[in-house]
């Protein structure tokens, strides 16, 4: 096994009820890189991300086939803990939903549960997470203010911070910038560049431009099929498949 593979998706299929929405997907996701899954609506990207942290288990009547390995170990292993998996694989959603509590508490409540930690340790973790999410300067003077008083972009960065505070290994962002203005988006992308030094990042970009801007590797998904995957240069520079080419040049459909 190559040294820098973090996640290996092996012949993975996903079914809602009897409807198959991911078909025999094989892919390796590398450490310290940004991998994006992109494609037209209903391609199965959200479903795939929700598979990586087993969040799909909230839905009734779902089935998976194949396997997903993180650091060589199956996430579906009956002995493995799903809460540990979710701490390791943090997820930021399309719609930011901070809790109706203070900015500080939104970031702190995860780490507080994780281990017995002293107040000052928690403070440090929160501060570092907010800095990594490029939110610290905006909120350092009003940590006790309600999270709802933040702008949409700030709320999204707060949600990134609360994932970072758990010191995960993988961060997944599902269209995390779709509701945001270009400046907030730029800030988040900038923090992603820094974060990849430390983490493995998987994202569903909100458009092709964003995918081109930030990806190291990209995977094009169409109706549950992985059409092609490779480095950013390969996929966006010289796509092998006509459909990929059509999509990134905006000639799709």
């Amino acid at each position: 096994m190559e040294e820098n593979i973090k996640i290996e998706i092996k012949d993975f299929s996903f079914l809602y009820h009897k409807k198959q929405v991911i078909h025999n997907l094989n892919l390796k996701i590398h450490k310290n890189e940004i991998t994006s899954f992109f494609g037209p609506a209903n391609g199965g990207v959200t479903t795939l991300l929700r598979s990586l942290n087993r969040l799909f288990e909230l839905n009734h009547d779902t089935h998976t086939k194949g396997d997903i390995l993180i650091d060589g170990k199956s996430i579906f292993d009956p002995d493995s803990s799903v809460t540990e998996l979710r701490r390791k694989v943090g997820m930021v959603f399309e719609i930011p939903a901070p809790l109706p509590i203070s900015i500080f508490d939104n970031v702190a409540y995860g780490p507080r549960l994780k281990k017995k930690k002293s107040k000052s340790e928690i403070n440090d973790v929160v501060e570092q997470a907010l800095k990594q999410a490029a939110l610290w300067d905006d909120v350092k003077d009003r940590l006790k203010a309600p999270a709802m008083s933040l702008s949409g972009g700030q709320q999204q960065r707060l949600c990134i911070a609360r994932v970072l505070a758990l010191q995960p290994e993988v961060i997944m962002l599902d269209r995390a910038c779709s509701g945001l203005d270009p400046i907030s988006t730029a800030k988040i992308e900038e923090s992603l560049f820094q974060l990849k030094e430390e983490f493995t990042i998987v994202i569903a970009p909100h458009n092709v431009q964003q995918a081109i801007r930030i990806s190291d590797r990209a995977a094009f998904m169409l109706m549950g099929h992985l059409i092609e995957a490779g480095t950013s240069d390969e996929v966006f520079g010289s796509p092998k498949d006509q459909r990929t080419n059509d999509y990134i040049t905006g000639r799709f459909g």
């Binding site: 969040l55 998996l85 979710r86 959603f93 939903a97 809790l99």
Partner: peptide, 24 residues
């Protein structure tokens, strides 16, 4: 999203209910 967000942070179902949902 409250519930999903909390579960995605690795809270157990019961922690999610106790810490996130009941207060909200």
């Amino acid at each position: 999203q409250y519930k999903e967000g909390a579960l995605a942070l690795g809270l157990t179902h019961w922690q999610t209910i106790r810490i996130v949902m009941l207060p909200a």
